[in-house]
Write a protein that binds this DNA or RNA. Structure first.
Length: 284
DNA sequence: ACTATCCCCTGACGGC
DNA sequence: TGCCGTCAGGGGATAG
């Protein structure tokens, strides 16, 4: 669910809710989302005060005093929700944080339980997962982007989804960015001309910025921590619009599968690349 | 260095 | 109404 703009929106919401607060108690209803026994998790966090909150790619990082870091990835359906203590707990809520001062709780809810929460202490090396992240989609320069793409033979779409190459993009924003830049998802990365990459970079930035302003895209169940839905779905041009007509050329938007992911393109605006995809496989 | 496929889970939706 | 297959915004493991 959440890609860079949604994660950024969540981070901003969490700042409003959590900065200056202390975790007075933690209740774990499903250990699965922690990845290790809940004792250590609770022991580390109970009594800790929130210092600052940020993100790295799609990871959310909550820094506490005592050199403590809460690292979270929401994957498909994870949500942080600010709720009054007395509100009923639904079956998909897996971790509950009591906040002090006040009478609010922060709850971690996750229908599919793909998301994970973990704590790191200062001395522990940052997990390889975080270190292996590629540059943030909002921070990379057009030049560096071009240089990096030149070194890759893979198709552009799976490459943009690869968080070790570039972090932050997911399926929605990749499809939207490629459409706006008029690039077919199967185009080899190193076949992209400098001007095409510049366009892609520009549209990617613009879309991400606009999506953050709109507080994200709500396709089905994304909510910010204060319960608000995003507004960027109004601006989607291809994602979820299969069969509808391209606003530029009128062709019907097509849905296909690229790298195992549902992929939306306009056949008029994004013609297949001359030398289709990368090497097919052993087909001799 | 890649690709493809399965898996983790639950829910929504379409066809019969 | 029920059953079944497919799909979903992410990403890790594994085999080829």
């Amino acid at each position: 669910m959440p890609e860079l703009p949604e994660v950024e929106t969540i981070v901003r919401g969490l700042r409003r809710i959590l900065i200056g607060k202390k975790i007075s108690s933690v209740r774990v209803r499903s250990e699965k989302v922690l990845g290790w026994p809940s004792r250590r998790f609770r022991k580390a966090l109970e009594g800790a005060s929130i210092r600052e909150i940020g993100r790295k790619g799609k990871f959310i990082l909550i820094a506490f005093d005592r050199d403590l870091l809460l690292v979270t990835h929401l994957r498909m359906t994870g949500q942080f929700l600010r709720v009054p203590r007395e509100q009923a707990v639904d079956k998909h809520t897996h971790v509950i944080f009591d906040l002090e001062p006040g009478s609010l709780q922060l709850r971690y809810r996750d229908v599919r339980k793909f998301g994970r929460l973990g704590v790191l202490t200062g001395e522990e090396p940052t997990i390889p997962l975080l270190k292996g992240l590629g540059p943030d989609a909002l921070e990379i320069s057009a030049e560096a982007f071009f240089r990096n793409l030149q070194q890759k033979k893979r198709a552009i779409k799976p490459l943009l989804l690869d968080q070790t190459f570039l972090s932050g993009l997911g399926n929605i924003y990749v499809d939207e960015s490629l459409y706006r830049a008029r690039i077919h998802p199967l185009t080899r990365a190193d076949a992209l001309r400098r001007d095409q990459v510049r366009e892609l970079h520009r549209h990617m930035r613009r879309i991400l910025d606009q999506a953050i302003k709109a507080k994200g895209t709500t396709v089905s169940d994304y909510r910010g921590p204060e319960g608000i839905v995003g507004g960027f779905q109004r601006y989607l041009r291809v994602y979820g619009r299969a069969g509808e007509f391209c606003r530029i050329c009128g062709s019907p938007i097509r849905k296909s599968r690229v790298g195992g992911r549902g992929t939306h393109t306009c056949p008029g605006c994004q013609p297949l690349p001359p030398h289709p995809p990368p090497p097919a496989k052993i087909s001799s």
